[in-house]
């Protein structure tokens, strides 16, 4: 356990050295938060109660989205990039000589990164949003804990997706196409573009059970009280399922990729 914590701490520290990037990122999140808030307020004024959200819910959702973009690494990045690079250069062989699992190693690092991004690029925009707009808070400590748990699971699910895309580069040599596709899918199916709850019938139900819903829609709905009790547990359960299934898939892909590296020599 102390090893995983040490890895996470190290990633946290490393990301915290990029202060200027963090500050400019926070500024960007806030600007977009303001713009989207006014857009959503206008939309919900025209269609009150759309998706079961009040206009306060909608604005809160905007700021939660801004807070989670970097935390969940919705658009890529994080330690999966490092791992992909190490597979490409063959340095991954060194990782294999160690008595620790590769995926656990990089996942722990990514959770450390996510913790840093949550405290900076997550918390600060939320506070700014709370100052400028009327946004809601979770209705108690239990809900708050459930939100944190849901965000942690969101990071794990997003880690697996990013890992799979990065691993693709290993076979394709250039993963620009898949990467772009992954960003588009994540943007729409996480609810970052528009909340999944206002998707048309049919598409909405499908989108809500796909892994991308974990990134934003599920934690946001727990925060907003759209999910309570069993519904919260159901949402978390689905996230656990996706995290487990996709981690298993990552393990299979990793075995195949490293076998190739190991065989190629170096």
């Amino acid at each position: 356990m102390s090893l995983w914590l040490a890895i996470a701490r190290r990633a946290f520290r490393r990301y915290s050295t990029y202060r200027a990037a963090t500050l400019s990122g926070i500024f960007t999140n806030c600007v977009f938060g303001v713009i989207y808030s006014y857009v959503y307020l206008a939309v919900w004024a025209a269609a009150p109660g759309a998706g079961g959200y009040s206009s306060q819910d909608a604005v809160t959702y905007v700021w939660l989205g801004q807070a989670l973009i970097m935390t969940v690494a919705l658009w890529g990045g994080g330690t999966t990039e490092e791992l992909a690079e190490r597979i490409r250069t063959g340095d991954v062989v060194i990782d294999l000589y160690r008595p620790v699992g590769l995926i656990g190693w990089y996942l722990a690092g990514d959770l450390g990164r996510a913790a840093y991004h949550l405290l900076t690029r997550g918390l600060v925009p939320l506070l700014v949003g709370a100052l400028l707009f009327d946004i809601s808070a979770p209705d108690g400590p239990v809900t708050a804990v459930a939100v944190l748990l849901s965000v942690a699971l969101a990071v794990v699910v997003s880690f697996t997706m990013r890992f799979l895309v990065a691993a693709l580069a290993f076979w394709l040599l250039d993963a620009t196409g898949p990467r772009l596709l992954a960003v588009v899918l994540a943007t729409f199916l996480s609810g970052m573009a528009v909340p999944l709850v206002i998707f048309p019938d049919g598409l909405r139900e499908v989108a809500l059970v796909l892994p991308w819903a974990s990134f934003l829609q599920t934690p946001a709905d727990i925060w907003l009280g759209e999910r309570t009790g069993w519904s919260t547990l159901g949402g978390l359960g689905l996230q656990v399922f996706w995290a487990g299934a996709l981690l298993a898939l990552c393990a299979v892909v990793l075995t195949r990729a490293t076998r190739k590296v190991v065989v190629q020599g170096g």
Binding site: L3, A6, I7, R10, R14, D91, V93, I94, Y97, V100
Partner: peptide, 26 residues
């Protein structure tokens, strides 16, 4: 294992931190 052409140390960490991480790994 020691590789002349690769490093087991972490590029962005001070030597001491790399060693401490290895202490935990092993």
């Amino acid at each position: 294992v020691v590789f002349g052409q690769r490093t087991t140390l972490w590029w962005d960490l001070p030597l001491r931190d790399s060693f401490e991480l290895l202490q935990r790994i092993y």
